[in-house]
């Protein structure tokens, strides 16, 4: 008898981000081994996630200098 699939595509997202409980994680893991269409969806989502992990914006040097200068000049006066 074939296994009944109890997870949703949202669970695939939880799997990618490592946020499923053990039982559900195992279920998705097993399904990925036998379901090619699911494996393709996983690969596509995983690729975007890995690109997002590398993406960052950098502030200007001027902003960084302004912050450091503010810190050096900021004194707390006790009353």
């Amino acid at each position: 008898m074939p296994m009944t699939k109890t997870f949703t595509e949202n669970d695939l997202v939880g799997f990618i981000y490592g946020e499923l409980d053990k039982a559900k994680y195992h279920e998705v893991e097993q399904a990925l081994l036998v379901d090619q269409s699911l494996q393709e969806k996983y690969d596509e989502l995983k690729e975007v996630v890995s690109q997002l992990n590398k993406l960052k914006y950098q502030p200007s040097e001027k902003s960084v200098r302004n912050i450091l200068n503010f810190s050096k000049g900021y004194q707390v006066h006790s009353t």
């Binding site: 960052k56 914006y57 502030p59 001027k62 902003s63 912050i67």
Partner: peptide
């Protein structure tokens, strides 16, 4: 942490100059 803070802000306000001000 500056890059992570800046990225968080920039992705919300979508304006580099505003993001620079807010990061400060």
């Amino acid at each position: 942490h500056k890059d992570r803070v800046f990225t968080t802000i920039y992705l919300i306000v979508k304006d580099r100059y505003l993001a620079e001000d807010l990061m400060q």
